[in-house]
Amino acid sequence: MKIIAIYNIKGGVGKTAAAVNLSYLAAMDGARTLIWDLDPQGAASYYFRIKAKVKGGGRKLVEGKKDLDDAVKGTDYENLDLLPADFSYRDMDLLLDKTKKPTQRLRKLLKPMAYEYDFTFLDCPPSISSASESVFTAADILLVPTIPTTLSLRTYKQIKKFFKDMGFDSAKILPFFAMVDRRKQMHRLIVENPPSFMPSALNSYIPYASEVERMGVHRAPIADFAAKSRAAQCYQSMWDEVKTKLFPHHN
C-alpha cells in the first residue's frame, strides 16, 4: 500500500480538492483506495456525502482502541472508501502526544490497512505540528499544493526547511501548482519557470476553475460530473504523473 499525503501549512490552497479527485481517479483505475479525512472541518467527508463523524469518537481511533477498519465508510464509488473526519481531530496533537512514539502513530495505525488497500490518501489539516510529523513519517509521498504567488512559495520553503531540520527525506516532497490563474502574469511566470528550490515540482498543475468550486454543489469528484472539463483532465494528468513517481520501474 502506498500512502499519499496532501499537505500544506496554508489553508485554502486546494488540498481537499486534490485529495478527493486523486483518490477518485485511483479508485477508477481499479485500485482499492482509502481516503482519510484528517481535517476536523470534514470537507472531504462532505464531498463524498458522508457525515464527518467517527462513531465512538476519533479519539479511540487514534489511541488504537478502535479498529480503523470499523470506522471506514464506503463512498458512492466502487473501490473507494473513506475514513470520515471527526471534530476531535482538532486536538490531534494532544491525542497523539498521549500515545507512545507519536510520530510513528499514523504509520502504525495504517499498517493493517495494507492488506485491504492499494492506496491511502491523507487529507491533512493546515498546520505544522507533531500531527504533521506523524503524517510525514507515514507517507510515501507528500503532495504539496502551492499557489504560484510569492507568499505561497515562501511557505513551501518553510516546509522544506522543516523537513530537512527534522531529518525527513525531502525526496518525498512533490509540490504542484494549484489554483493557477493564467490571466495573472505572476502565475504564468512561476508555472512556466518554477523556482530552483522546487526541482521536484510536478509538470501537471491544477487551474483555477469553476468546476473545483462546483464540487461542493455536486458533492462529487469533478470527473464524476464534468469528466471532460479541463480541471478533470488536469487531475488525470497529475494522477498519471504521480503514478510514474510511485512506480518508476513500471513501463
Binding site: 483505475d29 485500485a31 492499494d118 503514478k243 512506480f247 520501474h249 513500471h250 513501463n251
Partner: peptide, 16 residues
C-alpha cells in the same frame, strides 16, 4: 501482488 505494469513480462528477467 497487484502491479500497475502496462505489459505482462515475457520473462522473469524483465522484472525489477
Amino acid at each position: 501482488i497487484q502491479l500497475g505494469l502496462r505489459q505482462a513480462p515475457r520473462f522473469a528477467s524483465e522484472l525489477p
